[in-house]
Write a protein that binds this DNA or RNA. Structure first.
Lengths: 204, 204
DNA sequence: GTCTATATGGGGATAGAC
DNA sequence: GTCTATCCCCATATAGAC
């Protein structure tokens, strides 16, 4: 190692600040986290933050972007890993499971995103928009393809379906408790409901 | 009229303050609304608020409670108005429709509740809990009854089903746009998906 | 019931030492 | 790369006049 072995006594550096900030924003919301609190959790002083970032909202935008990218990548890979000719039900199960696991298990960034997006000022929302749009397009492409193949009912608007689906999945963050069941089990239940409904039998 | 005809130049009084506060909280979130802004929108000065309320959070608690009560009452009446022996599908359609209309069309209080509940301090959340629990129990009772009658699949946990359902309905607040379709139409689509799923045909 | 004035505290951000 | 010190603004809340 050409570098001297450094054992950072604090969680310093740009990345460390982002990590603790993501967790704090997820736990306490946009308005509940000050630069002083972020600095305190990272083991530095508030003024030092400005060496790494130009403003508080610059931190927030980076966290929002990283959160979406994490879920997007997770979902994209889960679907891409399936063999050719996989059925619609299996594809949707993979996509929903990946989204939910990334949100509930894997990443402080993705959960922070869902938690605070509705609380941030318009300028921050706008900065996050391109990244969001890309993920939304991924879902729209998937759902359109399945609908064109005849796997999905024809009378559902794709955009509305995507909004309903992602909205429902993200809402689980508010009540999901790992002590009551895994994210995987929840994904199973959710997929069952969305694909087949909750009625016991069909009506004419 | 024994009272002199008063044409309040400002939206004053306890109720007026609550009305404008509910709208502001819905539009800008918990952290985005100060007493000065509430007072400004109501046409009075910030200090005057304390004649009606003991603190900012006291206003918030009242708005949260009123929001739940509105949706609860709307849903309860919609179900109670159905004749004896109504089928499960019609009952659920009425309940979901009532919840969604109250949330999206009718009340600034109910939308404010959904919007800011996740942002308020724990003490405020606790104060709102009993009212929430009562509405949750209303849904659990309805769903349990339908499941016992054999109308719903047996393998779904009622609590989880209720969390998924209400969470999904409330999530529509983030993207619903009346210019793209009525709350009624959205309720139709949502009920269809939840009751029957989105797959075009059953798999063995 | 609403006003003005003010106490008190915390926030984001900047400057310059180390 | 982090510190200390500080500027300036805005927040909640209180006190007392009208």
């Amino acid at each position: 190692m050409s570098e001297t072995s450094k054992t950072p006594r604090s969680v310093v550096g740009r990345e460390g600040v982002l990590d603790v900030a993501a967790r704090l924003f997820r736990d306490h919301g946009y308005g509940g986290v000050s630069l002083r609190k972020i600095a305190g959790a990272a083991g530095i002083k508030a003024g030092s933050i400005y060496y790494h970032f130009g403003s508080r909202d610059e931190i927030v935008v980076e966290i929002l972007d990283a959160g979406i990218r994490t879920v997007h990548e997770s979902m994209r890979q889960a679907v891409a890993a399936l063999p050719e000719g996989t059925g619609a039900e299996t594809i949707l199960r993979a996509a929903i499971g990946a989204h939910l696991r990334a949100l509930l298990d894997a990443s402080d960034y993705s959960s922070a995103n869902v938690r605070i997006f509705g609380q941030v000022p318009q300028s921050v929302r706008d900065a996050n928009l391109p990244t969001r749009r890309a993920y939304e397009a991924e879902w729209d492409n998937l759902l359109s393809r399945l609908q064109k193949d005849g796997a999905l009912k024809r009378d559902v608007d794709i955009r509305r379906l995507r909004l309903m689906l992602i909205g429902a999945l993200n809402a689980t963050l508010e009540w999901f408790d790992p002590k009551r069941g895994s994210a995987d089990a929840l994904a199973q239940t959710y997929t069952d409901v969305f694909l087949h409904g909750i009625l016991a039998e069909q009506e004419s």
